[in-house]
Amino acid sequence: MSEHVLKATGRSVEGKGASRRLRRAASIPAIVYGGQSAPQPIQLEHEKVWLASQNEWFYSSILSLDIDGKVESVLLRDIQRHPYKQQIMHLDFQRVDANQALRVKVPLHFLNQEKSPAGKTAGVVITHELNEVEISCLPKDLPEYLEVDLGSMQVGDIVHLSQVKLPAGVEIPELKLGKEHDVAVAVAKHGKEEAEPSEAEGESADVPAAKVNKDEK
């Protein structure tokens, strides 16, 4: 069982009206689907889920969903938020089969950036071109994140997707699609200097304003 446990309750009444009533009662309507079982509508306590949603693991880890005492392993597949309130409107969870590979996006953690030669060079900017990447693996091999060590990065270096170290049993499906999919993950380059004013702009600045002729009386 996952160390991340969410408690839920089954619900029998569905529809927009029922969902609105749940939200007014500080609950979140949700659905669990996948596997050999039929989709199951559930509800969760908003405050506890909101606190869990502030953590990175909530989006990329296998969760133990306790529905009326029956625990299922699930992944969060969709979260709907209110456009301006701090409110979760709906959640979708997918059941996880321990023997079936899954695809999920996990965050990238960049390490030792400030200690690298590039990070110590004045005027050099290290940009993170990706913040997450989709991986494929069995549930037991799913990492909460992938580490990208930038400790040896030099000015002008580019770290590509194929250079990200993967735990055993984990692969990046995109890399199987061809070299053009081996995209940059991090880039070290000199920051852009402020653009010099163009000649046209310089000339226009030196031209005196036209005189306004006054009407003669």
Rank of each mutant, 00 (worst) to 15 (best):
I135C: 02
I135L: 10
S136C: 13
S136K: 14
C137L: 12
D141Y: 06
P143T: 08
P143A: 07
P143R: 11
E144C: 13
E144I: 14
E144L: 13
E144M: 14
Y145F: 10
Y145S: 10
L146D: 00
L146T: 00
L146I: 00
L146W: 00
E147S: 10
E147F: 07
V148Y: 02
V148F: 05
V148N: 01
D149N: 14
D149Q: 11
D149V: 13
D149M: 10
L150Q: 00
L150A: 00
G151L: 06
G151M: 05
S152I: 12
M153Q: 04
V155A: 15
V155L: 14
V155W: 09
I158P: 01
V159E: 01
H160Q: 07
L161A: 10
Q163A: 15
Q163S: 14
K165A: 15
L166D: 03
L166K: 08
L166M: 14
A168N: 13
A168P: 00
A168H: 09
G169P: 00
G169A: 09
G169I: 12
V170P: 00
E171K: 15
E171P: 06
I172W: 06
I172M: 09
I172A: 09
I172D: 03
P173R: 00
E174M: 11
L175A: 02
L175F: 04
K176D: 09
L177S: 11
K179Q: 15
K179T: 15
E180N: 12
E180M: 05
E180S: 13
H181R: 10
H181P: 12
H181E: 13
H181K: 15
V183A: 04
A184I: 08
A184R: 07
V185P: 00
V187C: 11
A188R: 02
K189E: 10
K189G: 10
H190I: 05
H190N: 06
G191R: 07
E193Q: 02
E193N: 05
E193P: 00
E194T: 12
A195R: 12
A195Y: 07
E196L: 12
E196M: 08
P197C: 04
P197S: 08
P197Y: 02
S198C: 08
E199N: 04
A200R: 13
A200H: 09
G202D: 02
G202M: 05
E203K: 09
E203T: 04
S204P: 01
S204M: 07
S204H: 05
A205Q: 11
A205S: 06
D206V: 08
D206T: 13
V207F: 03
